[in-house]
């Protein structure tokens, strides 16, 4: 007796796809990120981001507000050294006017040189320059921050993340959820507590934060209500500012996100169409051929 394990093409296609799906499902735990040091830290909540998902796009007004928060608050301690001023005017970002960006760059001094005499000199920044960092080097940064190093924020939203846990990581593969880093950043900025809970030993100069590993962070709560006055009149609550600066830092980390998703959608459509045509070609070719 022969087991009837092979079916007609369409059925075996389905079988193959099913098998593939099964294998991927089974293999998924492998893809989940292993536990990151959480040392008592709470898991950040999933936020609604305009740039999430297949059709996600940055909210230009939000990026501008986020830039303002960065400039007025975070830039005192954190650099943004991978971000060139010119990109503020490029498509897919805050899309400021060239004049506005030139004016903004003028507020910064950068070092240049050597000149003809061999001397280094400072000049006002140009569009092609990058955001200057607040400290000349890491040691200087540590010296001013109680020994802790405020990291450069250019790609911070891609350099952080958290475990999404089952079943979220599974769905993430199909929804394209990539926002764990920016979720974490928002949680961090809004996760401060004036007083550490009873019995928690806070080291000198440290601050209690629900989301930072070990629950104590050297960065003092950077945001407070009305800490900035938004040019567009939005009310500057801590949550609003945290959200805006997080979105802005997502853009600095992934400045090509909009282009990527736009092209990606076209590519997927094209391949779907192509695959459909190939499917019918294959079916047609094999019709009447015993296999």
């Amino acid at each position: 007796m022969i087991k009837r394990n092979h079916m007609m093409t369409s059925k075996s296609v389905r079988k193959a796809l099913l098998g593939l799906a099964t294998v991927s499902v089974l293999a998924l735990p492998l893809l989940a990120h292993p536990a990151q040091a959480s040392g008592g830290a709470a898991t950040p909540h999933t936020q609604n981001w305009s740039f999430a998902g297949v059709f996600g796009r940055f909210d230009k007004a939000q990026l501008k507000r986020g830039l303002q928060v960065y400039r007025e608050v975070c830039s005192a301690c954190h650099g943004l050294k991978r971000v060139a001023f010119r990109t503020l005017a490029e498509p897919g970002g805050p899309e400021m006017s060239i004049e506005a960006v030139k004016a903004l760059a003028k507020e910064y001094e950068v070092q240049d040189g050597p000149d003809d005499e061999g001397e280094m000199y400072t000049r006002t920044a140009l569009l092609s320059d990058y955001f200057p960092s607040p400290y000349p080097n890491d040691n200087a940064a540590r010296a001013s921050n109680n020994g802790a190093l405020p990291p450069d924020l250019s790609i911070i939203t891609k350099a952080r993340g958290y475990l999404r846990g089952f079943p979220n990581w599974f769905f993430d593969l199909f929804t394209g959820y990539q926002e764990t880093g920016v979720d974490y950043l928002y949680a961090l900025l809004t996760g401060y507590e004036e007083e550490a809970p009873e019995g928690f030993v806070l080291n000198d100069g440290m601050n209690f934060n629900h989301y930072f590993s070990g629950n104590q962070i050297a960065m003092p709560a950077p945001l407070s209500d009305e800490g900035v006055e938004y040019a567009d009149g939005t009310k500057a609550t801590v949550k609003q500012m945290a959200k805006d600066v997080s979105a802005f830092l997502m853009w600095t980390a992934e400045p090509t996100l909009e282009q990527r998703k736009r092209i990606g959608f076209q590519v997927i459509l094209f391949i779907l169409l192509f695959a459909g045509m190939m499917y019918f070609t294959t079916k047609r070719l094999w019709r009447g051929v015993k296999h």
Binding site: L31, Q36, I155, K158, L173, G176, Q178, F265, V267
Partner: peptide
């Protein structure tokens, strides 16, 4: 292409940034 365009960093590790 799903991974390349919509999930490019999911299979990597954030620490590598």
């Amino acid at each position: 292409v799903w991974f390349v365009f919509f999930n490019p960093n999911q299979l990597g590790h954030p620490d590598n940034y």
